[in-house]
Amino acid sequence: MKPLIGVTSDIDQNGDILVQTRFIRAVRQAGGVPVILPVGLEAIEEVCDRIDGVLLIGGEDVDPYLYGEEPHRQLGKVLPERDESELALIKRMADQDKPVFGICRGYQLINVAFGGTIYQDIYAQLSEDLLQHHQLTDLDFAFHSIDIVGDSKLAEWAGTSEVRVNSLHHQAVREVHAPLVVTAVAKDGVIEAFESTAHRFVVGVQWHPEAMVKREDPLSLKLFEQFIEAAREKR
């Protein structure tokens, strides 16, 4: 049987559940069966017992209260009920050593779940020499380069030390705590990926591989394939 993958969701301006089709398509293409998890999900433990992996998608900013900070003036919209339910998902799935894959906001929230912090706005809190991290071209096009740390799962999957990725964010991972380790960094020093050294598959990336899958970008495909394979093994 194909592994069952919980896919988190956002809320649109009308209060309706929102999940971009590209996340669903990428899970299916890699061999998983996606199940949409609504914001404010209840019965977290029961849900986690039934799914084989969880994909945390992008969306609004993470509430800085969760990592001990007051809101910066450039902080965007936060959705506390989404933060709460997704943090519970991350912790429960990690405790069961079930695969957790975070993209953009999902990646940042995994970092918070493991005690890390976030830059609330990289343009206000980091150097003026930053790259542009909010591309205006379509997300299925690679936009800037990242350097991949050797001796990591990401390096193994990429088969190279440098790749180009897309970019659509104004927040970024700041401090990373064990068991998470940094596995990729942009040319300006922004952390672009991490993985856990204590779990089968706890991986986060700042970019949007789900948008590059349709162009058959090798690393994007590999990320989803490895995620689904880890879920299949756990099943």
Results as ranks from 00 to 15, higher is better:
107 Y>H: 15
33 V>Q: 01
198 A>M: 07
47 V>P: 12
29 Q>V: 05
27 V>H: 09
44 I>W: 11
33 V>Y: 06
36 I>R: 15
188 D>L: 12
40 G>H: 02
153 K>Q: 03
235 R>I: 05
54 V>E: 11
189 G>R: 11
119 Y>N: 00
129 D>I: 02
9 S>D: 02
159 G>L: 14
64 P>R: 10
220 S>I: 07
22 R>Y: 12
229 E>H: 05
7 V>D: 14
50 R>Q: 15
197 T>V: 10
191 I>A: 04
38 P>M: 08
43 A>R: 15
231 A>W: 11
183 T>R: 03
39 V>D: 01
29 Q>S: 12
81 E>Y: 13
126 L>I: 10
105 R>C: 09
126 L>H: 05
22 R>W: 04
39 V>M: 00
159 G>T: 11
63 D>I: 02
100 V>F: 10
105 R>K: 09
58 G>S: 06
180 L>E: 05
104 C>Y: 11
5 I>V: 15
36 I>V: 15
118 I>Y: 10
67 Y>M: 06
150 G>Q: 07
162 E>Q: 12
166 N>E: 14
162 E>W: 02
38 P>H: 04
180 L>A: 09
84 E>L: 11
27 V>L: 03
189 G>W: 07
207 W>F: 10
17 I>W: 05
115 G>R: 00
70 E>W: 06
168 L>W: 14
110 I>L: 11
55 L>Q: 04
67 Y>K: 09
173 V>F: 15
16 D>A: 04
166 N>K: 12
116 G>K: 01
180 L>R: 07
54 V>I: 15
161 S>V: 00
178 A>Y: 15
199 H>E: 12
173 V>K: 12
176 V>R: 01
76 G>K: 08
154 L>C: 04
225 E>F: 07
12 D>I: 10
90 I>E: 04
197 T>R: 13
28 R>W: 05
226 Q>G: 11
71 P>H: 13
192 E>P: 04
235 R>V: 06
106 G>N: 08
145 S>P: 08
43 A>H: 15
176 V>N: 04
76 G>W: 13
100 V>E: 07
160 T>G: 00
80 P>R: 09
5 I>C: 11
172 A>R: 04
119 Y>E: 01
41 L>V: 14
73 R>K: 08
174 R>V: 03
142 A>I: 08
65 Y>V: 05
16 D>Q: 03
43 A>D: 15
229 E>Q: 11
153 K>P: 00
97 D>Q: 03
31 G>H: 05
136 L>D: 11
140 D>E: 14
152 S>H: 03
181 V>M: 10
123 Y>R: 12
170 H>W: 09
2 K>V: 12
62 V>S: 07
39 V>A: 02
1 M>E: 04
132 Q>N: 11
156 E>L: 02
152 S>R: 04
204 G>E: 06
203 V>S: 01
221 L>T: 02
200 R>H: 08
